[in-house]
Amino acid sequence: MSGIRTYQDLGKLVTRLRDDLNDKELVLLYAYNRTGKTRLSMEFKDRGKRRNNGKADTLYFNAYTEDLFIWENDLENDLARGLKVNYNSKFFDGFTNLGLEPTIDEYLKRYASFDFDIEYKEIQLADESFSKPSFVIFSKAGHVNIKISRGEENIFIWCMFMAICERILDGHESYKWVKYLYIDDPISSLDDNNAIAVACDLAILLRRAAHRKGENGAPAPIKVVFSSHHSLFFNVMCNEIGRSKEGEPSVGHKRYFLHRPNDEGRYTLRATEDTPFFHHVASLAELQKASELNTGTLYTFHFNALRSIMEKTAAFFGHSDISFCLKALDDDENRALFNRALNLLSHGKYAIHEPTRMGEDNQELFRLILNSFIFRFQFDLPEILGGSSTVITP
């Protein structure tokens, strides 16, 4: 598919996406807020139920997923603070016999520093009794029933979803009905600082979904639609999914910019596999803003973002890694310094709510690399971002 295609309503757009997933494992959608991504995810889910006589085929993560959890402040006693869980949802079916807590904790420890404990309730359905999660309490540094922030709450829910996905890919009975995952803006309410760490972990899981085998060893992929308005997050996802991994087959995927030109209900898809990624350039502008001496704030994760943009720039010019971008810089001494810095400082896990600020030396080095890169490659902001085309200059 080339150029831009228009779809008159969400139903026709869902048909396009499901058709794409007939021969691809993954569809990546970039879209601004208020485009209709959440409604699109629900229409995608509903299409599956209509096709399967009311039986779902899609496990989704979106704003409705977060609504399965309600914060309880225990206003009367101020003691039993935590998350009330809507255990009637199929989302929680696997908790009865899968023991998801260790996997949730493994993910959570990568992004946050609090602990959790899930309380269960026996649910009677016909002649059977099921144990379902009903309440979650949180603790930190010996303090129990603590109040966590909205961002921390959302990252906990996300870690729970990732743990469920692990069991889906393992082929557990509770989730054998899942043929598709639809993931919409998993970090919509989180601190932007460490989108990179979350995106890298998600990309690993989606690669596993694409290469999944059935019990007989035949290919049995879980097909995925991923959508986001977060340019940096989407940038990392494209890089991680698109790059070749030694010993792994490539992931068949399509990338689109989803847009709604007006309020008439029409949608457009712009294929972006073979065109410059305007969201990468938007990320570059964000880095330039963060690096401003008097008004910006630089964190260690910004090296990841810069490296990611350099990788995409090199790929656009037909080269396999960022050495192409570094070779384009004139100073041999700086070239070696930049290479060491990008290799050493663009890796590692960073806590979502405790971002690490760069030291003064690294800030100076970052600005030097960024300004040299921008000066060498004259980037045009695409008109589709709004307004006229603008050249980013140091």
Rank of each mutant, 00 (worst) to 15 (best):
Y180D: 03
D127A: 15
F138Y: 06
E25V: 02
A80R: 12
E72K: 06
I369F: 03
A203D: 00
R212A: 01
A195P: 01
Y30A: 09
K349W: 02
L368I: 02
T356I: 13
S134E: 14
M237Y: 09
A126H: 12
K176H: 04
A314P: 07
H143Q: 15
R208V: 00
N145K: 03
F69K: 04
N22M: 14
N88V: 05
G3D: 07
E173P: 01
D184A: 14
L337P: 09
D170S: 12
Y120E: 05
R167W: 02
F375W: 09
A163C: 06
F366D: 01
K132V: 04
G3K: 04
R260P: 03
E383K: 14
S129R: 11
D23T: 15
M1N: 12
N339G: 07
D105K: 14
H253D: 02
H211D: 05
H259P: 07
I168D: 03
R81E: 08
S41P: 02
E119Q: 13
A285N: 09
Y350A: 13
S228D: 01
A210H: 11
V281G: 07
L269M: 08
A218I: 06
Y256L: 08
F324S: 08
I309G: 00
R5E: 13
H172F: 11
E166S: 11
N154V: 03
L59P: 10
A195M: 06
A195Y: 05
M162F: 05
D332R: 10
